[in-house]
Design a binder for these strands. Structure first.
Length: 789
RNA sequence: GGGCCCGUAGUUUAGUGGCUAUAACGUCGCCUUUACACGGCGAAGGUCCCCGGUUCGAGUCCGGGCGGGCCCACCA
């Protein structure tokens, strides 16, 4: 008999197969109209793969592999998102430089250099978990192709009047010193102090509670609720601002909460979003007290040049000194901070580029309905985000490492000059617009801002397809992503696709959940409950981590528990051993030429059950329900196939002669083992590949992953075999129970076995006798019952 | 405050109106049986969060609670 390795070593096998797939180009295709196309999320080089990545990328890879086997035509690109602030921050940190202290050119070059340096090792993690992307054609969101497409998209929207430049109050990060978009806000509970400050209306003293006393010089009005009788008499009066001694009006607005603080509030330009709205609505004065680096300016008087924090301390001291501060009490309140750096968001008036999303909410909502969301309820999140948008999408950033706007300004008029589409990509610092004659170049100044990173990652379908010149294949088939970036990546991609191509970007969107710790808490460095996927793969294997990831449904969070990885490893071992057993027993198998009906009953039983598994697994994968596939295939493999079928046919297989009964079993074994490997292949691509390579069959493909997915076979539907087979298995279980209760080994003979059954068990009586070691067997028709002696 | 999701053995979970409610891990007992002791067989373990309703029939559908998670809003 054939000797096979006793153990499977994933640490040896996995890199070997990964290399083979890449060397042989197993996953390389040029996409066409029939391709299943995937808009792969490009990870950000600014960090290593974390365990949340592992599960969600594993899950999307299940679908890539399933559809590849089903259709033979899957376009699964890979890219990295190297654009924008995350990379800038990484470079500043690792290279110990400051973007503001070097030239734009130098800093941009250092960013490019750093990415090149990090990329190869970074991508290794994605290869290691068995992503079946084409790693030979890889994009970066900052490469020249991406810049070209991103700029092209900008020009397209500009020409359609969907992007415009406007001076307006905009959310601003003092640390990153750039405008930011609504989607980049994050909530944080911060401790602060409520300060009761005296304002004066003539001789009357009014108390205002504020957490932001440094905004006093920016106060342009006081506001109260129109029904608040404490303040209605102030109508038409002008209030004196303490320390600064200028006067502001009182406005009455229903949005003011009567019970908050003293019911009287400052309107400042601009303390928050509400201030911006009220400033517009009541046409108030503008008193901007910040410069763009977060220092106070001359309007703040004594506070000029101080940071916000220092200014707050100083003004509180002065207020106290002059008797204007009557009370202080600590509070905790939610504050909007910039998600990239955690700095509190301020509002500044500045000129920025905006994409007009607000006036297109209805179209965006309609587009969301045309996409199939998995799970379906995730669509609601998208809808709520769109419905509640308050601002147009600000796409300009006062940063360095991003895709430049293809824009210059004419110094004489201030009007923008847009690049010609044929000259993209352009860097306005280096290039000149085609439309302007050389003699007028001296009048041009380049746009200094760069685009927001999302302005480019929102065209990943175009970027990925453009690598093959197939941009017309939008909508793509699938967008896989996590739920935290529905409001950014999913939303912005829909915006871009709808605005420039009048279509949805993809037909299906699969939203993965997060990985939590065993108690269901989010993993975070500060909690110290982070698990590194690299360590997990060292200890277990890529296949076992994928097997674990397959257990979570789309959209569901999944707790990381090491015991699940142990289970995964056990499944690998079981698959290895069962396959080894089957392959050994196929040693003398020369094929089976008879019809399905001529097979032994138990062989038809396992094939019929397998056939149903094929159907349910195909349906489940098609419906984006990978966890059902995992559950069902695992059950079938371990329970039906290993514990029952293999035990039952051992008697026939051990016959040294080539009997027809043995050949029948060998036929079933060969069909089922290959089928199980194929059904498991999307989830555990390495071990299934390893075993597939050992199968003693002809007509195998070079890789199981480009073999065909099993077909449902009508001729294998055999309800009689299934009914009889189930009773045979039940009878076997009764005998096992008897032996267990009597402390007998499973090999121990029983002298008498009598089974009552509605089915004709004589059809498989030899198998039943062999597996139970019954010395005599009796079968009668009747309600199921087993007697053993 | 608004919205979405989820409450099933000790734990993680299957279950989209119909047998005695899944399975894995854990616990306990047994079995060294020529694929596998990283195994096999078996046992114990459940008020399917609570209350009401619809139905011949509800873990499943509807209403109302309670509890947990997430998203959004709340920033004076």
């Amino acid at each position: 008999m054939k000797e096979l390795p006793k153990r499977y070593d994933p640490h040896e096998a996995e890199p070997r197969w990964q290399k083979m797939w890449e060397d042989e180009g197993i996953y390389e295709i040029v996409p066409d109209e029939d391709s299943y196309t995937i808009d792969t999320p490009p990870p950000t080089v600014s960090g290593r793969m974390h365990i949340g990545h592992t599960s969600s990328y594993a899950q999307e890879d299940f679908y890539a592999r399933f559809w590849r086997m089903k259709t033979g035509n899957v376009f699964y690109p890979f890219g990295t998102d190297d654009n924008g602030l995350p990379t800038e921050r990484l470079v500043e940190k690792t290279k110990k430089v400051s973007s503001t202290k070097m030239s734009r050119k130098e800093f941009r070059e250092l960013c490019h250099f750093t990415i090149k340096e990090l990329l190869p090792e970074f991508v290794e993690d994605w290869k290691r978990i068995g992503m079946s992307c084409d790693f030979k054609t890889v994009y970066s969101t900052i490469d020249s192709n991406s810049q070209k497409i991103s700029q092209h998209s900008f020009i397209d929207l500009y020409k359609k009047g969907l992007v415009h430049r406007k001076e307006t109050p905009v959310a601003w990060c003092m640390t990153c010193q750039t405008a930011i978009a609504q989607a980049e806000f994050e909530n944080k509970d911060l401790t602060s102090t409520f300060n009761d400050v005296i304002f004066k209306a003539g001789d009357e003293e009014l108390i205002i509670s504020t957490t932001r006393p440094e905004f006093i010089p920016a106060c342009v009005a006081l506001a109260a609720h129109p029904d608040d009788e404490r303040y209605t008499h102030l109508k038409g009066k002008r209030i004196t601002i303490p320390l600064y001694d200028y006067k502001v009006p009182v406005i009455f607005d229903k949005e003011v909460a009567i019970d908050k603080g003293t019911g009287l509030m400052m309107i400042c330009t601009f303390g928050d979003k509400d201030d911006v709205e009220k400033w517009h609505r009541y046409n108030l004065d503008l008193r901007i007290i910040f410069t763009k680096d977060g220092k106070l300016n001359e309007l703040a008087g004594d506070l000029e040049g101080l940071s916000i924090i220092d200014a707050r301390k100083k003004i509180l001291d002065t207020l106290k000194e002059k008797g204007h501060l009557v009370k202080q009490q600590p509070i905790t309140h939610p504050v909007n901070v910039h998600e990239r750096c955690g700095t509190g968001i301020e509002f500044l008036k500045s000129t920025q580029w905006f994409v007009k999303v607000l006036e297109n909410k209805n179209k965006l909502l309609a587009a969301g309905k045309k996409i199939n969301w998995h799970p379906a309820y995730m669509q609601v999140r998208y809808e709520h985000w769109v419905e509640n948008l308050n601002w147009d999408w600000c796409i300009s950033r006062q940063r360095y490492f991003g895709v430049p706007f293809p824009v210059w300004y004419d110094k004489r008029t201030g009007e923008p000059v847009i690049a010609d589409e044929s000259q993209l990509p352009v860097d306005p610092f280096v290039d000149k617009p085609k439309s302007v004659p050389e003699s007028d170049w001296k009048h041009l100044v380049p746009e200094e801002d760069v685009m927001d990173t999302w302005a480019t990652s929102s065209v990943t379908p175009q970027i990925a397809l453009a690598m093959h010149g197939k941009q017309d294949l939008i909508p793509m088939s699938l967008r896989p992503q996590a739920h935290d970036i529905i409001r950014t990546w999913a939303f912005y991609t829909i915006v871009k696709s709808l605005f420039s191509k009048e279509t949805i970007p993809w037909k299906d969107i699969a939203i993965s959940g997060f990985v939590t710790d065993p108690k269901g808490h989010k993993m975070s460095k500060s909690k110290g409950n982070v698990v590194s996927p690299q360590d997990v793969m060292d200890k277990f294997s890529a296949d076992s981590i994928r097997f674990w990831a397959a257990g979570a449904k789309l959209g569901d969070d999944i707790p990381y528990m090491e015991k699940d990885l142990v289970t995964g490893n056990k499944t690998l071992t079981k698959l290895w051993n069962a396959s080894k057993f089957v392959i050994m027993n196929l040693d003398d198998y020369k094929g089976f030429n008879a019809k399905f009906e001529d097979l032994e009953l138990m062989d038809r039983w396992i094939l019929s059950k397998f056939n149903r598994l094929v159907k349910s697994s195909t349906d489940a994968f098609s419906a984006y329900d990978h966890s059902k596939v995992k559950f069902d295939v695992e059950q079938f493999f371990w329970n039906d196939f290993c514990d029952n079928y293999l035990e039952i046919v051992k008697g026939r297989l051990y016959d040294p002669k080539d009997t027809i009964e043995k050949t029948s079993a060998q036929y079933a074994l060969s069909q089922v083992i290959e089928g199980i490997l194929k059904l498991f292949a999307p989830i555990m691509p390495f071990i299934t590949e390893e075993i597939y390579a050992m199968l003693p069959f002809e007509n195998k493909t070079k890789s199981i992953h480009i073999s065909s997915w099993p077909d449902f076979r009508k001729e294998w539907v055999d309800s009689e075999a299934e009914l009889v087979g189930e009773d045979i298995v039940k009878a076997v279980q009764e005998v096992r129970k008897y032996k267990s209760a009597n402390q007998l080994s499973m090999n121990a003979p029983v002298s008498m076995l009598r089974v009552l059954s509605e089915q004709d068990l004589t059809l498989a009586e030899n198998d039943l006798i062999a597996v139970t070691k019954a010395e005599s067997f009796d079968h009668e028709l009747g309600e199921f019952k087993v007697d053993i002696e």
